[in-house]
Nucleic acid binder design. Structure first.
Lengths: 108, 108
DNA sequence: CAAGTGTGCTACATAATAGGTAGCGATAAA
DNA sequence: TTTATCGCTACCTATTATGTAGCACACTTG
């Protein structure tokens, strides 16, 4: 199971250029990656708590995503479970406007 | 090939709640979806032009993504090829800060 | 007209990823 | 000792992505 975590500066699943934005898109363009970051907005969650928050995503996938997100320094594991790192919170800040916008878009 | 385009208000691949943000994350959390929107930033591209811009993504995938993005009113087809719609440009505007941020993140 | 070129795709086969279920080993409380 | 929760791992199946080939159409070019 060679699950590769996309890293800026080297080729990855979709991108051979290694451009940071492409590595980011590759990393976040996987099932539940965006959702996990989103669900951690209000503070740390345990593995099973996060699983519940993500509508019962399978532990297999959840664990894969968490591994990738940890290798990418977006998520870390603390005493209270999984939490966003500084980088993760920055990213979340950039994603938040999407929440509002998606509400408008949904009404189209 | 029952490829389902996630729509707000109804359950989709990852999300059973139908929350707009989850439908959006599902739609954009597929390979090359983010990249396609990104590459259309500077104007319309032909199918093959877009394929080249996305580092040779297979026509199979490109066509699936375009179909989904068109059904979601983010991309449309005009005389000059594929282009972002008004919604698409709005979304791109929200994504743009990620470009700058990813550069910083890459240096970590 | 014929031949070549570019375009938007579709078909098909294979590889990679996601999803679902069962359950293990550890920890802690009753 | 039982019971319960937690963080996972194993295993299998279903879905999605990737890669290559090539068709049908339109448009030049000679």
């Amino acid at each position: 199971m060679p699950t590769i975590t996309p890293k800026p500066g080297q080729p990855v699943r979709g991108s051979k250029t290694g451009k940071p934005i492409m590595a980011l898109f590759d990393l976040m363009g996987r099932s539940w990656a965006l959702g996990i970051v989103w669900q951690l907005a209000d503070g740390p969650l345990t593995f099973r708590g996060l699983q519940a928050a993500c509508e019962g995503v399978s532990p297999t996938v959840l664990n894969r995503r968490l591994k990738e997100l940890r290798e990418s320094d977006l998520v870390e594991r603390g005493d209270d479970g999984y939490a966003l790192t500084g980088w993760g919170r920055e990213l979340l800040g950039l994603l938040k406007p999407l929440g509002k916008w998606s509400g408008q878009w949904a009404k189209r």
